[in-house]
Amino acid sequence: MEILMAILIGILFMTATYLMLSKSLLRIIIGTGLLSHGAHLLLLTMGSLKRGAAPLLGEHAEAYVDPLPQALILTAIVISFGVTAFFLVLAYRAYQELGTDNMDRLRGKEGHE
């Protein structure tokens, strides 16, 4: 399962990178979304998969899966949501004000360095 997940994570990172390198702002945002999915799965996979019960003491199991990556991912999900929301509004407002979402045209003027 871990091997399979590793390949899937690779695919997620690849598509995310490709989208982020494109010129359209919307595609870049979608790219960051995919990137965070990939990162979350990577964290989870690194902590080994399915080695025990869900990390709830009420389960009274012999072994539990690693709770630490889960805590990390929970934080990361929320943060990436914040970033995505921020990005989207940024793109929306930039388009409204400047009339484009093409990154090449959003460079700023010459001399504004």
Partner: peptide
């Protein structure tokens, strides 16, 4: 570049 990133992440995960 994308394929490179994907491959390297897979390798690291493995």
């Amino acid at each position: 570049i994308s394929i490179g990133v994907g491959a390297i992440v897979t390798l690291i995960a493995l």
